[in-house]
């Protein structure tokens, strides 16, 4: 190759370097094509968290103190979901009510669109593109990687506020860490199934990690719809009349 040729080749290589870097994340395995699409929770077959959580003595004390100060909990007022404030992670993943979610695979990214509260979950496969020092949010910070055909996702920075049996109500700590192992399977009717083993690590609160196994049904005929939680207050405004939610009256 002559000099001009190599110079141009170097220039071209330089120009395509960012593209090559963007492609440095391992591509999605073939199984991603099968995972992409709309899924509905399989309420009957999915697991649950234990009713009694294995709390550390400090966490037990804090929980009792919380009940003493604020109890009894009135779900019509104290359930943040009823006020359209979505419960923190893993709410959308552990939900068994029949709200679908959609999984979308694009280079370097798995995006999950939940119908419930119109939530969006961004799972980055390149940890460099998502900063560590983010403020805690309801969905948290999720970073994933493939172990063969299993998508392993670690989620941190999940905020404490919110309601529910585990994800928001005290006691939880901001240091909690969720590890999901998401894979494909077949249910006992021979239908395609998405499996998610969610493990919660929260050593300040739990004496041992908790695991729940969630299952989801393949639902190609369903589209994730619009979820207008606030329709209620808007309708009150448009049409007049009381609300079904006490604090909004």
């Amino acid at each position: 190759m002559n000099r001009r040729g190599s110079l141009l080749a170097i220039l071209l290589l330089g120009a395509s370097a960012p593209l090559l870097a963007a492609q440095a994340v391992a591509p999605h395995p073939a199984v991603a094509r099968e995972m992409a699409g709309v899924w509905l929770p399989d309420g009957k077959r999915s697991g649950r968290l234990p009713r009694e959580l294995p709390l550390t003595p400090e966490a037990r004390k804090a929980a009792d103190e919380y009940q003493r100060r604020y109890g009894p909990i009135d779900p019509t007022v104290d359930d943040a979901n009823a006020s359209c404030i979505p419960e923190s992670f893993p709410y959308g993943m552990r939900l068994i009510a029949q709200y679908p979610f959609e999984v979308l695979f694009t280079p370097g990214r798995v995006t999950i669109f939940f119908e419930i509260f119109g939530g969006i979950r961004r799972i980055e496969l390149d940890p460099r593109v998502t900063p560590r020092d983010v403020l805690p949010t309801a969905r948290g910070r999720s970073v994933g990687h493939w172990e063969g055909d299993t998508l392993v996702v670690e989620t941190t920075q999940v905020r404490k506020t919110g309601a529910g049996p585990y994800s928001g109500d005290p006691p939880v700590s901001l240091a909690r860490r969720f590890v999901e192992r998401i894979s494909l399977g077949t249910d006992d009717e021979g239908k395609k199934q998405l499996r998610n083993e969610i493990t919660i690590h929260d050593p300040a609160v739990l004496t041992q990690p908790l695991t729940m196994r969630m299952l989801y049904k393949w639902s190609p005929d369903i589209e994730v719809g619009e979820y207008l939680c606030q329709q209620d207050i808007w309708d009150q405004n448009v049409q007049g009349g009381p609300s079904s939610v006490p604090w909004r009256k």
Partner: peptide, 10 residues
């Protein structure tokens, strides 16, 4: 305020 957003259990 009971608890805070930075510590462990409230």
């Amino acid at each position: 305020r009971v608890g805070n957003e930075t510590g462990a259990a409230p």
